[in-house]
Amino acid sequence: MSAPAKVESLRDAYGQALLELGERDPKLIVLDADLSGSTRTVLFGKKFPDRFYNVGVMEPTMMSIAAGFSLEGRTVYASTFAVFAAGQAYNFVRQSICYNRANVKIVATHGGLLVGPDGGTHQIVEDIGLMRGLPGMTVIVPADAPTARAATFAVAEREGPAYVRLTRESLPTVTDGSFQIGRAAELRSGSDLTIVAVGALVARALEVAGELAEIGISTRVLDLASVKPFDEPALLRAARDTGAILVLEEHSVLTGVGALVAATTGENYPVPVRRVGVPDLFGESGEAWALLDRFGMSKERIREEAWELLRLRGKVQ
């Protein structure tokens, strides 16, 4: 196997990319709701103070103010934690931004259980489902810092609202940053099984795929960072080529990427699909990575689910 991957901060990558965007687009506006140090928008604020507004603890109205700027022709980035961006502000994202087709890019940090010790109140595991359901919304879930950087630029190029979900935790670098909206990245080729993963679990998908290779199982790994629009051809190709799909997401299995994959294959090319993610539960306090294990996303669990799919396909006993 290759050397251990570099571990990098997605939030730092976002903050740095924003600085470059601020240079490129002299009209760009950035908003934050009293979490600018954590989201890293503070970097933009220091460099471009006249185009940065820290509006305080008012996430719903931050979305409306962002829409107002955007309706005047500006591209706007609005950042806060995911629980506030997608949860607290939901109907403001819906009406002020999406219904108005406003060109607002919501970059939400601290998505999922990896928030860790702050506990279940702050660990939103419903945001991908909420945002994906909004007409016109682009939804991106980067797996590493290079993708976070690329996604920050990519959503600027695409007219209309976008939601980018970042993690609080730094993550192993698993991509080359060649992210494109609407394209799944095949991080590993394979013919016996496909693992579709997003965010923090992409690295685990690659680890499990590596272990399976040692016993002769060929596993394809797709990084579905572009959740909406998503790469339906790549997904259906994987269904045809490998006959079984395991989905990994640090999100509720009820409404997340697993549901998307199951529905898409079910309608077009039915194959066995199993979902590894957060069950119908709120999170709790704990060390970030230990929470993934506790809530059913351990490597052991991933291996078991992979094995079950391989058994269903008659590829193992």
Binding site: S64, I65, A66, A67, F69, L71, E72, S96
Partner: peptide, 12 residues
């Protein structure tokens, strides 16, 4: 929500 969008427009 309209008042928030108005604030954004006035800032712009």
């Amino acid at each position: 929500q309209g008042i928030g969008m108005a604030v954004g427009m006035a800032l712009d």
